[in-house]
């Protein structure tokens, strides 16, 4: 009996183990803070997609969706994707940070699993919530660099980590020197757009860097506007009365997003869309 039962049990165990391994790779979590992700370098992949796609709008007009703070609002991601996919002439969607709530790898994957159903590529900048726990590592693994730029249709997007509090206000975040360099590079550029999470008017922005940061923006000749998130509700204005327009995105929870249409050197139209 011993000899007949053992192989059967062994077989059962092996079979169970094999099934678990096959179906369970995603479930097999070392830690909620680990950074093992099937989808990596999404920023680079989405940029490649963007550059490969023909621009859907004519002339020098560029149209894109501006949103932010997807942060634990998974119920809203599906309806947002459906709504954006119905829009015409959209080139991309940008998220002004706080992809996750707890800075966990899985949260970023949940968002990507839903946003990858967008017909257009999407691009992100890191938010403060994405830096809690091991989030900064997870973000870099799944999305990519914290500061980066890309140019599409002669429009230069400058995406910068402005979450100063996450670094204990160390005087290095945001990297104003890097920002100045990017703003100075205007060869072949018709307009520039800065996208970040925490705006300089917020208490989470390094107070010692507010002046150099805002002055760099005010001096930039091709800057169209400054886009940010963090506040969850939409706003537009000139908080520093220096000619620079600051626009705060709707968070996903508001069930609204903004479509920005830009043309010429400094023209833009803003539409709010509820979903």
């Amino acid at each position: 009996m011993f000899f007949t039962l053992i192989p059967r049990i062994r077989q059962a165990i092996l079979l169970t183990a094999a099934t678990l391994l096959l179906t369970g790779c995603e479930l097999f979590e070392f830690s909620p803070n680990d950074v093992r992700a099937a989808d990596r370098d999404l920023t680079a992949k989405n940029l490649a997609r963007l550059q490969a796609q023909p621009k859907p709008t004519g002339g020098d007009t560029l149209r894109f969706v501006f949103t932010g703070d997807s942060q634990r609002f998974y119920d809203e991601v599906g309806p947002l994707v459906e709504s954006v996919n119905r829009q015409r002439g959209i080139s991309a969607l940008v998220i002004a940070g706080d992809i996750s709530d707890f800075g966990l790898r899985r949260e970023m994957q949940w968002v990507n699993d839903r946003l990858r159903h967008l017909k257009v590529p999407y691009l992100t900048v890191i938010g403060n919530h994405d830096q809690v726990a091991n989030g900064r590592q997870a973000y870099q693994e799944i999305f990519g660099p914290l500061n980066y730029t890309f140019t599409y249709d002669r429009t230069r997007f400058i995406l910068i980590d402005t979450n100063s509090r996450e670094y204990g206000f160390n005087g290095k975040v945001p990297d104003v020197g890097w920002l100045q360099q990017q703003l100075a590079d205007t060869v072949g550029i018709r307009r520039q757009i800065v996208l970040c999470h925490v705006p300089p008017s917020n208490e989470d922005f390094d107070p010692t860097l507010v002046k150099p940061f805002t002055e760099a923006l005010a001096k930039a000749p091709r800057l169209l506007f400054h886009l940010n998130g963090h506040a969850h509700s939409f706003s537009i204005g000139e908080p520093f009365a220096d000619g620079v327009t600051y626009i705060n995105s709707f968070a996903f929870e508001k069930r609204q997003y903004v479509i920005l249409t830009v043309w010429g050197a400094d023209q833009f139209k803003l539409e709010k869309v509820a979903f």
Binding site: L20, L27, F73, D75, V77, G78, L104, R106, E107, W110
Partner: peptide
């Protein structure tokens, strides 16, 4: 874990239970 449960409980249509499961042997 607690944070996954909070995520699921606040997103009953957006997340599935399998999204928040982990496996250990």
């Amino acid at each position: 874990n607690d944070l996954y449960v909070v995520s699921l409980a606040t997103n009953l249509s957006g997340l599935k239970i399998t999204d928040v499961l982990t496996l250990g042997v």
